[in-house]
């Protein structure tokens, strides 16, 4: 009996986790088979198109460069955003001077910057990385500023009175205090970065994931287009999972602390 119960529970969890997606896929299949909407491709056709389209040379030619630009853009905006955020957050005068300006730049819808970047940098790979950075940096920058400002002042004063050097104070007091906010910013930045990767390629490119999907659509390659949407979805989910892992690692101490206060 005791051996069966965990097995039952696992089965129930599995059923809950996979039940609705399974039902959805079946409904999708039935619907696409019966409907005469020619823009609807069935799950089997999409899966087949996925295998034909993305597994093979297209992965190296279109998907990898896109992912590389995405990674560069995200890494760049984290480095720049956190560095600038720490500087702006710890210098009150600088913060007040730049405040309204930053509010304005954050409010610009990031895809609007693509034409500007095309004008200034031409249609290049650098342009796309710059576009991704110019959109993804704001949530990181502003959250870092808030995080740095929220550093416990008693801790800062303690560090001061022990004459802890500036660098160590940054490393052991300010950065950990700002880390939860920084991670919040990074999570917001990830979805912005993905959007900008796709849009910049739909706009100005002859390769890349966004370009491919737009190409399939223009040529009425319906199943291929759906497979591209599926691939983008998978990338989005992969990013979310990766972020979850990194966040758990970086904020381990913080989660533990929260659990203690809650108990």
């Amino acid at each position: 009996m005791t051996a069966r119960r965990p097995a039952l529970r696992i089965a129930a969890n599995l059923l809950f986790a996979l039940g609705l997606p399974a039902v959805a896929v079946v409904l999708w299949g039935v619907w696409s088979a019966r409907s005469d909407n020619r823009f609807l491709a069935g799950p089997l056709a999409v899966l087949d198109a996925f295998r034909r389209t993305w597994i093979g040379p297209a992965f190296v030619d279109d998907v990898l460069p896109s992912l590389l630009r995405l990674a560069l853009g995200i890494a760049g905006s984290i480095v720049l955003g956190v560095a600038a955020g720490i500087a702006i957050g710890s210098l009150r005068r600088l913060r007040e001077t730049l405040g309204p300006l930053l509010e304005f730049f954050r409010a610009i819808p990031p895809p609007v910057l693509i034409p500007v970047a095309m004008l200034l940098l031409g249609i290049t790979g650098t342009m796309k990385v710059v576009v991704i950075m110019s959109g993804a940096i704001w949530p990181i920058l502003l959250n870092t500023i808030d995080g740095v400002r929220a550093t416990d002042s008693v801790m800062l004063e303690t560090a001061d009175s022990y004459r802890i050097p500036r660098w160590e104070r940054l490393r052991f007091v300010v950065l950990p205090a700002a880390a939860p906010r920084i991670m919040t910013g990074v999570r917001q930045a990830l979805s912005v970065a993905l959007i900008l990767m796709v849009i910049s390629e739909m706009f100005a490119s002859s390769s890349g994931l966004g370009y491919r999907i737009a190409y399939f659509q223009r040529n009425y390659l319906i199943a291929e287009m759906w497979s591209g949407i599926l691939l983008l979805g998978l990338i989005g989910i992969l990013l979310a999972v990766l972020f979850g892992l990194v966040e758990r690692r970086v904020l381990r101490w913080y989660q533990g602390m929260k659990e203690i206060t809650r108990a």
Binding site: F39, A214, I222
Partner: peptide, 22 residues
């Protein structure tokens, strides 16, 4: 709905642009 939501939420909305146009 948990897994379905977690699966659909990170899908970038711009991926749907070609579909919406069609």
């Amino acid at each position: 709905t948990h897994t379905t939501v977690e699966f659909l939420r990170p899908v970038p909305s711009v991926a749907l642009i070609p579909l919406a146009v069609l």
